[in-house]
Design a protein around this nucleic acid. Structure first.
Lengths: 243, 243
DNA sequence: CGCTAACTTGATCGACGTCAATCGTGGTGG
DNA sequence: CCACCACGATTGACGTCGATCAAGTTAGCG
């Protein structure tokens, strides 16, 4: 969880704790050496650097080894909408395998370490493997379900509930990857970024965060939001939806 | 396009004009008889009838032969959010193949004719076919892209623009299936349904529609919305996004 | 011909956006 | 080591899009 602790991706994939979450999870589990052989590079990005450009057919696709990234789309009015976040183990990006221009951009949120794979090679590999394809299908179905949920949240729920539910969802994702230390978790997310993800203005997001801080639900630091008690957070979110 | 003209699905799939749009498109094109052999039933639904229930693992999945359907989720407050519409040729539903509870419900909007396939059989068939899997992956990627677009529309664009863009998108979908007669198209959609899809109240949707009618962009009939000039509609939507 | 579902219209309200300062803090150069 | 600067967070005043509440009005359908 601590960004400063992030190291370059390991030289050999059998030492990698996140590979099994990625697209090639079954292969990684069965024979990590095969993944190491497929990997074409390791690379680091600084906060704010672009990992994949909107409209490109990238030459390289990645597995996020450490750090946070997000995918987004610029709006004609200069605004930016953030469609989702990538956490360690995520494959960046399934849509890039399809040899069509990527319909969004991906940018590093924190310092980021990735393992790179030649896109064409990976795509070919997937296209002849039932195992990889069905894994991909599973991931896409899950992503679709997530998007349905986000759509409902944005369309029908007031901003404060959206914020609570977002925090809960991120917490659960971290927990699913064993990235949850004992006491709460830390989002390395500036308020302006979170606002662009929730579809509210930074000003209004700040007002909501201050209100939550006064209730002891979150702590606010420069470029960080801390959730000291995820369980209480989940309770709050649940009773708010029920109402 | 005319609902009253809808007939039962044909006895043999080689006469079917929509099969090639469905999940098994390649098979249908190569050997329609194979699809006929796979099909386990033909069935009709009346407007408002439930085709797939939220949380079920359905025994049968469908290809929509004629009519319109929509998928939706009920909200804890009794509201309903419509996540998308199915048109003739659409497979209902990709998510149902995954042997997990369906995360939404599907309901007939108009009178609907469908071809049914045993879910397990179809799922098995897909799981051993690279061709079907990659077709499914393509469909899922496209759906994901659509959902991204809807998310951005709902999060960032004012309701009237959302309405315009929705109409344009439906028109394009109809065109892609050769379901566009010369002069404009007709949505068999009550205003309450459209409101639930756009995330606005019926009252406000009606005000927007009346305004558009006064500008000659749409015509309004009971349970129908008509778009006489899709090209002008597209122009309006485009200049509105640019602004 | 009356009943009901769908649509329409007006008045009012509130969540959230916009505009505009100001504050605080970490990083940088002198 | 300190002063400054710039970016991120915060606060206040005010405006508006779209919700809500409450009546009508219309048109299919029995």
């Amino acid at each position: 969880m601590d960004i400063r602790a992030a190291q370059d991706a390991p030289l050999f994939c059998d030492a990698c704790p996140v590979g099994r979450h990625s697209l090639y999870g079954p292969i990684h589990t069965r024979n990590a050496g095969e993944v190491t052989a497929m990997r074409s590079l390791r690379r680091n990005f600084l906060p704010g650097q672009t990992i994949l450009r909107d409209g490109d057919v990238p030459a390289t696709v990645y597995t996020l080894f450490s750090g946070w990234a997000f995918r987004f789309k610029m709006l004609p009015d200069g605004g930016r909408h953030i469609l989702g976040f990538y956490l360690p183990g995520d494959f960046i990006s399934p849509a890039a395998l399809d040899k069509a221009p990527l319909p969004y951009a991906v940018r590093a949120l924190t310092a980021v370490h990735v393992c790179g794979f030649d896109r064409q090679t990976m795509a070919d590999r997937v296209s002849v493997s039932l195992e990889l394809q069905s894994g991909l299908i599973g991931q896409l179905l899950q992503r679709k379900q997530e998007l349905d949920g986000m759509l409902i949240d944005i369309a029908r729920r007031p901003a404060e509930l959206r914020l609570l539910r977002f925090l809960v969802a991120i917490g659960e994702k971290l927990k699913a990857r064993n990235m949850l230390p004992q006491q709460g978790f830390d989002l390395p997310v500036p308020q302006a970024i979170l606002a662009d993800a929730l579809g509210v203005t930074p000003v209004y997001l700040n007002r909501m965060l201050v209100a939550l801080r006064e209730r002891g639900v979150v702590e606010i630091a420069r470029k960080h939001i801390l959730v000291p008690d995820p369980e209480r957070l989940a309770e709050l979110a649940d009773e708010a939806v029920a109402a």
